[in-house]
Design a protein around this nucleic acid. Structure first.
Ligand code: ZN
Ligand code: ZN
Ligand code: ZN
Ligand code: ZN
Lengths: 159, 159
DNA sequence: CTAAACTATGTTATATGATAACATAACATC
DNA sequence: GATGTTATGTTATCATATAACATAGTTTAG
């Protein structure tokens, strides 16, 4: 994840966003696309107020207020284009929209990179546990904090 | 979960808390015990400011300030006696301290009751996925929102 | 084409959740 | 009982998120 052509990630995300909005019959306005782009600048989750500042810097808007950002985030979440990372109060691009359930989020505590990893066996185990307790799942969040391999290697070479 | 002798839950929680504090060489002060009791009043997660108000009402303190509550919550979390429910910004009693990893939290979207369910197969699936991606897990959170059985039954009998 | 309805954004104020920094009190050890 | 340590009190502030209402843009029907 650390070394890759990230422009491809951004392009794919924008392409998917346009498809999804078309399917759902909603508009990917300039504001929504701008914020989605900002979120996809890298693979780290970004806070709402940081996005607010980034939007002010990277557009010709004078002042951006919180509701502008939060409404847009709500829209993007609603249509599965981003995730809220609850353990960080931050937002990250979704790499696989059009899914029924959220994937596992692996969050590196050193570099902050967050990778969304689909995993059927985790989902199956959750579904089984839920059905055993006669619990009907509506949605779920699995956030895993730890160290990614590049950061472990870097730390090892430091010492 | 809906129908049970909840006093037993409270008594066990307090007993465990005393054991844990003894083991860890820390003190379960009056304040810490009061807040732990308030959290264990039921199986719903409670917010920090609600706990603050409850503490004012249920003790002879005049004013309770946020740091008083947050420091105590931090202590209780650090020693594994409560969990923070990130999706609600609220705190709930831990029913199984002395574990290496967090269990799955099943949160009912109707009644708010939250049940902590240990599940080895979920944990195994997470560990496998992590090792496949060479990711070292430090901690994790799995929060599952949905409907508990009693609430489903109640809804069915309403219609 | 334009009025009406709907959707999106702007604006101001405020609610809610959490922490920093420093002062005081309680407890333990010697 | 002086000293170091842990716990709590106090004030101010930061960080995150939403309510309420105003304006602008877009679509649809007549
Ligand atoms: Zn990338
Ligand atoms: Zn990393
Ligand atoms: Zn109980
Ligand atoms: Zn319920």
């Amino acid at each position: 994840m650390h070394e890759h052509n990230h422009q491809i990630c951004i392009d794919q995300a924008l392409k998917r966003a346009k498809q999804v909005c078309l399917q759902h019959g909603v508009r990917l306005t300039e504001l929504r696309e701008q914020i989605l782009r900002l979120i996809w600048q890298n693979h780290k989750p970004l806070g709402a107020y940081l996005l607010m500042n980034l939007l002010e810097e990277n557009s010709d808007r004078e002042h951006v207020a919180p509701p502008t950002v939060y409404r847009t985030l709500d829209f993007l979440i609603e249509h599965g284009l981003i995730h809220k990372v609850h353990s960080l109060n931050a937002y990250v691009g979704c790499s696989s929209p059009n899914q029924d359930r959220c994937n596992a989020l692996f969050i590196c505590s050193v570099c902050g990179e967050t990778e969304e990893i689909p995993n059927n066996s985790i989902q199956q185990a959750i579904n089984l546990s839920a059905s055993q307790h006669k619990f009907t799942v509506e949605n779920q969040m699995l956030e895993i904090m730890g160290k990614c391999q590049p950061c472990k290697q870097k730390k090892a070479s430091d010492s």
